[in-house]
Simulated assay, not measured.
Amino acid sequence: MRAEEIVDEFPVVDIDSPARDAVKLLADYRLSGLVVGTDTSDKPYAVLPASQVVRFLVPAYVQDDPGLARVLTESMADHAADKLSGKTIRDLLPHKAQQVPIVDAEDTIIEVAEVMSRLHSPLVTVVKDGKLCGVITASRLLAEALKQ
């Protein structure tokens, strides 16, 4: 089985899109991540895992000392998403450039799994003739692997 046989259409967000809109997309469609923009070659610019967005909601001092999470009041926790106001997708991406999980449409599911595993990504982007043709999520890959 080849990657192009199991791709799904997936939303692509622009790097300068409002972060709140992107998070709503993640939440509404229960996505494991988002494909961010494309460069001039139509290849994805980045993949933003939902876990990275969740991390953004956690105050830096709680990331430094996880025990502080217990002392935050419920009303403070209820406003965690307020940190997204005025932010863009660019602000949510790690400052250090990450390798984009890209596979070729002709790659096998083992090749797809290797890229997903090595890059710790919940999804991989699939390109054919240099252009984005879809995405394979970890859950889709596992479902296909179980069919074998």
Rank of each mutant, 00 (worst) to 15 (best):
Q52E: 15
V12T: 04
K96N: 06
I110N: 07
I6W: 06
R55M: 12
V103K: 02
D14N: 11
Q98K: 08
P94V: 01
E111N: 03
A19C: 02
L31R: 01
P11M: 04
I6D: 09
S139G: 08
K83C: 11
R55K: 15
V23I: 14
V112S: 04
V7L: 06
G37C: 07
S32W: 12
P18I: 07
A113I: 00
H120V: 01
P18W: 14
L48Q: 00
G67D: 13
K43R: 15
L72R: 09
I15C: 07
S85Y: 08
G67N: 15
V58L: 12
V135E: 08
P49Y: 11
S75M: 10
A138I: 05
I6F: 14
V13I: 10
L132N: 05
A3N: 03
V100E: 02
Q63F: 12
L57A: 07
V35K: 02
V124E: 01
T38P: 01
T108W: 02
A3F: 02
A138L: 12
T137W: 04
A77W: 10
L31W: 00
G86P: 08
L25A: 07
I136L: 06
V54Q: 10
T108P: 00
F56T: 10
L123N: 06
E111V: 02
T40Y: 15
A60M: 09
V54I: 15
L84T: 10
D91G: 01
P59V: 13
K131M: 10
D91H: 09
V100F: 03
A19S: 02
V54A: 14
L119A: 04
A19N: 02
Q148K: 11
F56M: 13
V58M: 03
T40Q: 13
V58N: 10
D107H: 09
D14G: 11
A81Q: 12
D16C: 08
L146I: 14
A22N: 14
A50P: 00
L93F: 06
R90V: 01
A97C: 03
E4C: 10
L26F: 05
I110S: 14
H120C: 01
K147T: 09
S121A: 11
